[in-house]
Design a protein around this nucleic acid. Structure first.
Length: 404
RNA sequence: GUGAGUGUAGCUCAGUUGGUUAGAGCAUCGGGUUGUGGUUCCGAGGGUCGUGGGUUCGAUUCCCAUCAUUCACCCCA
């Protein structure tokens, strides 16, 4: 038997219904905020992700679905959504036009990892990206939009917030941190590696002994320049005003290299060891990194699989028709009836003749609202028998009445 | 990549201290005398006991390998 590759799942009912429900409503909300749908290719040049996500990240370091195609191109299945959208933004020359643009997207992402609860090799994200809105109000707006989405689905969460500083204060801070780390020999091997590649990542190391050492480490939040500090203060006050609960996590570091200033993560404790259900932040340098004109950007992405388990969906009401023949002679009529009715109604047809009891059972199992049967009695009188499975009323009517 | 657990019917799982024809519940199909569902009763079909090798008179059971899967680490959505 051939089965799906490790970490790749088929999407079937009822999860497929949840998936559509989730994407449709997130799209609706994003449109209300002025976002437009964008779809970018799943396959991109590998260099795109190396330059945007960053060589120092685990995603690029060991998790990419990367291969050489038949034209000898180094290509990669996208591990996240932002890079492709930014590439498209630049390719369309929106950076040169200097226009504000807001996009939302959803689709599959690929990371070559060992699967576990809430973590797949092929998973799906819903995300948004907003370009050329340097105002801190945009940071707040994007968080409010994300909160609105999660609230709509009744999903519980905690919001964690941090500021990573800008190109002015971040390098200075990084230097300070490296100096601090220089004297520490008791940190774990991973942290020693991070000290050279991406020192800020040591802060969210999960090794206890490391965390004890970092108690005294300089924090980003204490080293922000005045602009970043003011923006962060303003962001907090907007969130307060709109009743968004959050906790400041000075050690929150996003896994992708391109973030600066506002960084946030929505977490849940109901989905196993993987707690992040959505994450995002600002990336004001990314467009430049990818050869565009300097353009600010901010966005977030949600992990759809992690979220749809948490969605509470109302029970689906009985819907549509079930049609079945009680004798062989009626089977052609039932077939014709079903084909015609389907122009306006949902119809499930049973091809085999069965007892009335069997048909009713089937109709009930399929959650149909009406059960339609045709047998010898009906054929003789040129009628069809219809029962409303919800209020149990039954009657015999003509085929035309049923079509209308 | 590392570690631990699990692979017996479509699904959830019993079971065999190694011994004839391997069990249950749910699901499926049929039936409970004339054409009435979501609750019942009866019956039926369906399993190379993950795969390969080893020990043994005999393995689904013990041993080894392998594959798959789950959870966790790492990291992330």
């Amino acid at each position: 038997m051939i089965q799906a590759l490790r970490g790749m799942k088929d999407l079937l009912s009822p999860n497929s219904q949840r998936y559509i429900y989730f994407v449709e409503n997130c799209s609706r909300i994003a449109k209300n905020y002025g976002y437009e749908y964008i779809e970018t290719p799943i396959l991109e040049e590998t260099a795109l992700f190396k330059r945007s996500v960053g060589e120092s990240s685990d995603i690029v370091g060991k998790e990419m679905y990367q291969f050489i195609d038949k034209g000898n191109n180094d290509v990669c299945m996208r591990p996240e959504g932002t890079a492709g959208v930014v590439r498209a933004f630049i390719q369309q020359k929106f950076d040169r036009a200097g226009v504000k643009k807001k996009f939302f997207y959803h689709g599959p992402m690929f990371r070559y990892e060992r699967p576990q609860k809430g973590r797949l090799r092929e998973f799906h994200q819903f995300g948004v990206e907003s370009f050329n809105q340097a105002n801190i109000k945009e940071d707040a707006t994007i968080i409010l939009m994300l909160k609105e989405m999660l609230d709509f689905f009744g999903i519980g969460y905690k919001l964690e917030l941090n500021s990573l500083g800008c190109s002015e204060c971040m390098p200075k801070y990084k230097e300070k941190l490296v100096n601090f780390l220089q004297d520490e020999d008791d940190i774990c091997d991973d942290c020693k590696r991070r000290r050279d590649t991406n020192p800020i990542r040591v802060l969210d190391c999960k090794v206890k002994s490391c965390q004890e050492i970092y108690q005294d480490a300089p924090l980003l939040l204490d080293n922000l320049c005045s602009t970043c500090r003011d923006d962060f203060t303003q962001l907090k006050s907007i969130l307060d005003k709109f009743d968004v609960k959050y906790t400041i996590n000075p050690k929150l570091v996003r896994g992708l290299d391109y973030y600066n200033k506002t960084a946030f993560e929505f977490v849940s404790d109901e989905i196993g060891a993987q707690s992040a259900i959505a994450g995002g932040g600002r990336y004001d340098k990314l467009v430049e990194y990818l050869d565009g004109k300097p353009t600010s950007g901010i966005g977030f992405a949600m992990g759809i699989e992690r979220l749809i388990d948490l969605i509470v969906m109302s029970e689906t009401a009985r819907e549509g028709y079930y049609i079945g023949a009680l004798c062989d002679e009626a089977s052609d009529l039932c077939f014709e009836l079903a084909i015609n009715m389907r122009k306006t109604k949902k119809v499930n047809l049973e091809y085999n003749k069965k007892s009335l009891k069997a048909h009713l059972k089937n109709a009930d199992k399929q959650n149909a609202r009406y059960c339609v049967c045709v047998g010898e009695d009906e054929l003789a009188k040129d009628l069809v028998w219809v029962k409303d499975l919800q209020n149990k009323e039954e009657k015999s009517i003509t085929a035309n009445e049923l079509l209308g």
